[in-house]
Design a protein around this nucleic acid. Structure first.
Length: 425
RNA sequence: GGAGAGGUGGCAGAGCGGUUGAAUGCACCGGUCUUGAAAACCGGCAGGCCUUCGCGGGUCUCGUGAGUUCGAAUCUCACCCUCUCCGCCA
């Protein structure tokens, strides 16, 4: 009963219904939730009345016994009450559980500024930064270049692990490591994030906390015989960092730059992006995650997105930023910007970061609140996260945008100190 | 893996079957005193849910879940987590 703000606030519900419709769904589940909530309240009252009776009777028995009086008739009466309570408890649990499972399936309400639309074609491009590079030769795809250089090996990876895995070798591995260091240095030294390496395995509760479960169980790897899941993103451990905690207002904002490997089953994307490093079961990512005061979350959303963009700016890569429309935005997000980098080998823009404001959607699930400064009721924090950036895809972007006719790769200026060279060959 | 100890409010820490949602201290908020601050003193101060226009009332929560009992933070069982010692291991 904590997953949706208020099932009795008509103004809120009206906006929420509109949001559900804009997402391409209907209000059937919501209507069920409202109905179930009424039932839950009714059951609560019935149950609590009986329990109050029982409690009083017990107290009487206590005081009678203390005085050495006989209390056997009262005890018999309580026995009867207990039976009734047991039955009421069952129907209360039933109502509560079905309400909970309905609420877990309801997506976040989208922000007013989110464009209404059906698919990614309706996303709104906010800005385009930099220029597409021009080549005096036909630009190649990253995997052609990398395989020719011998810095990636897909064949042996499929023997050793399977499809959608790779060995990065020599400059391939070093480029990845350089990018990881560059991103973390930028976000920690200049943008004020705290560097983190989180657990790569998390428990079931954590998957519910981020909103990954119950809807997207198929997308993550489960460890057989253990209650652990491989994280699909550092968002999973980081969002749960303050689970069930009460923060002070002065503790906000909290900003983390978490480096981790990410693991995704990619179920349902068979045949999509099978070539190259674009869609792997395992990839590296620097995730930006912040916990902020509810009044500050939209300001923070823009800040976080700019922090992610800064990586591309310094790498001098061309990209664009779009606001995802209601039909394309994810289940838990209230608003989301996608950053897409230009890939000349593919002649297309590709998502390299997704920056979301969840408002209190995740905070309600993880039960993370803060105490307002001058006292008053605890409030839910707002959570945000965004890739800053997906390292594997940044490797691709660097290879394709900095490729040379002779098959070598120029090194972006900001990476030269990390790689100790101006050219990879 | 073996042996022990423990998980209580924002924090620390008592309580170990009966009006205990919980002593005390710290933190926090309000007040007295002070030119101001500190100190001292006085008072307040957990959260969720239901109910009430409001005062308030009810109920649940002392790691989690089941159980014993008229009644459980206190007893029993299972599980989870933390710590100490031994063994093994990067």
């Amino acid at each position: 009963m904590i997953y949706v703000k208020n099932l009795e606030d008509e103004v809120y519900l009206q906006a929420y219904r509109q949001s559900l419709a804009n997402r391409g769904g209907d209000s059937a589940l919501l209507d069920q939730a409202i109905e179930m909530n009424l039932l839950r309240k009714k059951r609560t009252q019935e149950l609590e009345t009986k329990k109050a009776e029982q409690k009083k009777a017990s107290e009487q028995i206590g005081s009678k016994k203390k005085k050495g009086e006989d209390a056997s008739s009262e005890m018999a009466a309580v026995q009867k009450l207990k039976e009734e309570i047991k039955g009421l408890e069952e129907s209360f649990e039933e109502a509560k559980n079905s309400l909970d499972s309905i609420l877990l399936q309801l997506p976040n309400k989208v922000h007013e500024s989110v464009p209404v639309g059906k698919s990614d074609a309706d996303n709104r491009v906010e800005r385009t930064v930099g220029e597409k590079p021009s080549f005096a030769f036909a630009a190649k795809a990253h995997h052609e270049i990398a395989e020719a250089m011998g810095i990636v090996d897909f064949e042996r990876a499929s023997k050793v692990a399977g499809a959608r895995f790779s060995f990065l070798l020599h400059w391939g591995a070093k480029l990845e490591r350089a990018l990881m260091n560059f991103m973390l240095d930028l976000h920690t030294d200049e943008h004020g994030y705290k560097e983190v390496i989180p657990p790569y395995l998390v428990n079931t509760e954590s998957m519910y906390g981020t909103g990954q479960f119950p809807k997207f169980q198929e997308d993550v790897f489960h460890i057989k015989n253990f209650p652990f899941y491989l994280i699909p993103t550092a968002e999973a451990p980081m969002t749960n960092y303050y689970r069930d905690e009460m923060l002070n207002e002065e503790d906000l904002p909290q900003r983390f730059a978490a480096y981790s490997s990410c693991f995704r089953s990619e179920a349902g994307s068979y045949g999509k992006d099978t070539k190259g490093l674009i869609r792997q079961h395992q990839f590296e990512k620097v995730e930006l995650m912040t916990f902020v005061h509810p009044d500050k979350s939209y300001e923070e959303h823009d800040r976080l997105t700019q922090n992610a963009e800064e990586v591309l700016k310094r790498l001098e890569l061309h990209y664009r930023v779009s606001t995802l429309c209601t039909g394309d935005i994810s289940f838990g997000a209230a608003k989301c910007y996608d950053i897409e980098v230009w890939l000349p080998g593919e002649n297309a823009y590709r998502e390299i970061s997704s920056c979301s404001n969840f408002e209190d959607f995740q905070a309600r699930r993880i039960n993370t609140r803060f105490r307002p400064k001058g006292g008053g009721k605890p409030q839910y924090v707002h959570t945000l996260n965004g890739s800053g950036l997906a390292i594997g895809r940044t490797v691709i972007a660097v290879i394709e945008n900095y490729q040379q006719e002779d098959g070598s790769i120029r090194v972006p200026k900001v990476l030269q100190k990390y790689l100790g060279t101006e050219i990879l060959k």
